[in-house]
Amino acid sequence: MVNTDGQLFTIEGVAAGLIMLMTAYIIVGTTSLYTPGDSHISDMQLEQMGTDALRMMNIPNSSATSGESTLQKVIKNNDTSQFSQTFLSFANKRTGGIDDNLQFSADYYYRNNLANSVNRIHFTESRIPTGGEHAMRVTQWVQVDNSAGTMPAGVDTRVQAVLVEVLVWRD
């Protein structure tokens, strides 16, 4: 038997059912867990911090046209302890409270003009990476004048651009 009783109750029941279904769907959606792979936010901060530290090191220390930056001097004179000290100080100092504990491992890449090959020189590190770190790679171009041959053997004795690559991770 078809009759017209209870239409409002039927409509209400259908609407309430839909609302409950959608609410349950959204509640399940809001509780997704972040796994360690979803660490883009801290990666972004780490990359910015490392890039900023390297860029600060690559700003000339004087306004003279021949003024070299700390990074240029450090690469040119192979001064690993100066690099380590400056980079850690730039990356880890805070305006207040205890220092941050970023660690790094630095390499640089140069091109051999005669063989046209790209070679790597391991520069220095604050801690030897074990492979388990969640590290970010930050880079900086540096123009160095190796006419005096103060860089390690194998690097061309000329003006050249080298690419400094630093792995940065938070310990």
Partner: peptide, 16 residues
């Protein structure tokens, strides 16, 4: 020097 530095930048950018 410019020619060499230009090659440095191109090669290192491509490989790294």
């Amino acid at each position: 020097n410019l020619t060499r530095v230009k090659n440095d930048i191109s090669s290192l950018s491509l490989s790294r």
